[in-house]
Nucleic acid binder design. Sequence first.
DNA 1: GGAACCATGCAGAATAATTGCATGATCGAC
DNA 2: GTCGATCATGCAATTATTCTGCATGGTTCC
Lengths: 310, 310
Amino acid sequence: MQNNCMIDSKLKVLQMVAQHGTVTAAAEALHYTPSAVSYRVRQLAEELGVELLAPSGRGVALTAAARVVLRHAEVLYAEAERTYAELAATVDEPTGLFTLCGFSTAASRLLPPAASDLRERFPRITLRVIEAEPVRCFDLLLSGDADLALVTNTADTPPASDERFDQKPLLDDPLDLVVPEGHRLTRLSEVDLADAADEPWIVGSPGTTYHHLVMNACMTAGFTPNIAHHADEWETGTALVAHGFGIILVPKLARLQDWPVVRLPLSGDAAPVRRVLAATRKGGRDHPLVTAALERISSSSTLPVVRDEA
Amino acid sequence: MQNNCMIDSKLKVLQMVAQHGTVTAAAEALHYTPSAVSYRVRQLAEELGVELLAPSGRGVALTAAARVVLRHAEVLYAEAERTYAELAATVDEPTGLFTLCGFSTAASRLLPPAASDLRERFPRITLRVIEAEPVRCFDLLLSGDADLALVTNTADTPPASDERFDQKPLLDDPLDLVVPEGHRLTRLSEVDLADAADEPWIVGSPGTTYHHLVMNACMTAGFTPNIAHHADEWETGTALVAHGFGIILVPKLARLQDWPVVRLPLSGDAAPVRRVLAATRKGGRDHPLVTAALERISSSSTLPVVRDEA
DNA sequence: GGAACCATGCAGAATAATTGCATGATCGAC
DNA sequence: GTCGATCATGCAATTATTCTGCATGGTTCC
């Protein structure tokens, strides 16, 4: 996808200062130096005839005028994205760089086939895949370093109402229960999450998305899990399970190493899922490369596709 | 008012090429050289990854992609204008240059008092008034050389649907009949346009707005005028009237030199008017300086104000 | 066929943006 | 309090970008 021509880059600088809170952090995100950022914001402020930044502590704070500008900037960027999308749709052979990003599992299981498919259908596009946490995915979208992101919702993730992004539910990734081989639950024909209420649990570190996900799932199923261990990677968790330290929940999308464990699909209404969202910059959802990528991901996935119109 | 920051100036260049048809004319309007315009358009095209201009005869023609870009550019500019307006409304003391323009009569009768009033209310604003034909007024708005224009509708004027402009009816300027002193019509207590059906008429040159205006008025009143002479300036027309060559219609707003003529207000339903419109760039209508200027013009005018919401 | 007009490319000039450091100011820790 | 860390900004030098002036090649009109 092309970079932001159309909108003056000074606005992007201001937006980055707003996003990252400090001039220095904005500079880092833009691959600039702090003094360049400072200079450009000052310049924008002069051209607009208003103050945009005010010193606050050792950093800066946005003025009311800056917030006005940023609110309108969202509209501008969305319109620019729609333009790029429309142009790409009218051109026979889109050209340029298209970057997909997504959290670990998505990056390993969903993005490579989609990218490969796109490369075949649009040979003149250079494709790039970045594995990044959801929060960083949104940063990548905003800075133009990525064009489509697969994310899950976390507490740090922008809300759906954020006018800078489009977030569309893409598919639901159900969670499987992983138990050691020969575990009592493997003898049941159908396993419900509540069946595992008395087991020792292995969850993510407090505060992580995975921790919340498991906790919420258990609460919904009607019990508070007995937390025996913490593990933040599937590999670690699976190893603990294999050695009989407890059980874990893993998304279907996640591939596990070869351990003596059994993956049990969960049934019942409370069967927990991890919802995968497709995020773009506002206005970029209809870009032909975006729709092609999402189509491919939806159609090739064995997971339930969310047919919701966000 | 501030110049166009926010939107990349390359878009303005493309818009100017579209508006003026040739690279050379666009360059002139932007105070650039043709090669600079050519360079910038090429650059925009490269950044967007599309062709924007194609050679056509000895000039250039816009591609479909260029038209797509321009359609979106209209939205961008409108949003930028709304931003400027909102910023100016939040700032206690607007600063900068504010330019009013209008056709001759408006420039001499309506703009000076409005400008004077603005200068008093906004001392830090530099005011500028430009007298220009309606068509050029729109060019001035587009190029940012003017911020508010008083125009009348002509055949060359952009239609109300043009998304680059806001055109709001401001006031109706009724046309008076000008006859020599002692003319038979001066003895009537009320004069209808139809009463002048048999007089020799002095109108503008064919094709001018004034010509159309008079012709339409007469047609509406139910007669085809007997055109004896053509005069494009009030001064000339009045002189001809004074010497008994015929009669003319002049807008109430127009001041006439001291000739032995009588101005007769017209009554009746068919009483012709010249509608004065206030034009701004799209989105600029709510700028505090614009609203202040229009308020002043409306309130100080003895002419019927159009209370229409355009 | 020639003159006028138009767009574009290129080298050099003018302009603008960016860096690298130095300064001053604030905050937290000890 | 004082020191070190963090942050923003200003300035001079460097670097990148943009613009001009002219030359070229194509097109139209007379």
